[in-house]
């Protein structure tokens, strides 16, 4: 029961408190780039969840059985980038072959994630926090869900921005960045909520 509790806490904290986009500012480029329309945002969000979980499942064993045992911890970043890039390419091929419908709906987002810093960030965080394998997977899932949540929320905000009157000099990216900072500040309100989840 305790392990289950701790898993729930990891999940909730990665979704809400330590939201990758809004609190750690990782993966900002897809957050700003693909959040214009809701369906695109959702597509990107699910692709990120998928890739984060699979990447963690692959990089965790590599860190613990290859890098750590040979004292190569400092090569972590390079090896992870390499593995994640290869992995995403592999997943894309496999999806194209076996689940063409999913491949079509994920579309261009899958290759876009290849070098996404949020994916690299979550795999490295899993190691730094010395999570177990199961905890790592749960944490990745949570981060992915958090990314999806941020994308969906922000696509709603952006559609509002499009309809509103903005001073000429703020139109476009400035207004979007300001709106992103407001959403990010709103997420600060979740800080401390998770520790008392089971209190």
């Amino acid at each position: 029961m305790d392990t289950f509790k701790s898993l729930i806490i990891i999940l909730m904290s990665s979704v809400l408190v330590n939201n990758y986009v809004l609190n750690r500012f990782l993966g900002i480029c897809p957050f700003l780039g693909v959040s214009k329309k809701l369906n695109q945002a959702v597509g990107m969000g699910f692709s990120v969840i998928f890739v984060m979980v699979v990447a963690t499942a692959v990089t965790w064993p590599i860190q613990h059985f290859l890098l750590d045992s040979y004292g190569l911890g400092y090569m972590q970043t390079i090896v992870f980038i390499l593995v994640i890039a290869a992995l995403v390419q592999f997943i894309e091929m496999a999806l194209k072959k076996f689940i063409p419908s999913l491949h079509k709906s994920l579309g261009v987002y899958l290759p876009l994630i290849t070098t996404n810093c949020a994916v690299l960030g979550v795999t490295i965080e899993n190691i730094d926090e010395s999570f177990t394998f199961v905890e790592s997977i749960v944490n990745s899932l949570g981060c992915g869900l958090g990314f999806l949540l941020a994308m969906v929320l922000f696509s709603g905000v952006r559609s509002k921005i499009d309809d509103s009157e903005i001073p000429e000099s703020f139109k476009g990216l400035p207004a979007t960045l300001i709106a992103a900072s407001f959403v990010s500040m709103a997420f600060l309100g979740f800080a401390g909520i998770v520790d008392n989840l089971f209190a």
């Binding site: 590599i62 290859l66 040979y70 390499l82 390419q89 592999f90």
Partner: peptide, 14 residues
């Protein structure tokens, strides 16, 4: 060797 082998394994797999 370690990084090269990871790279080669990825390349072969792909």
């Amino acid at each position: 060797l370690a990084v090269a082998s990871v790279g080669i394994i990825c390349a072969v797999l792909l």
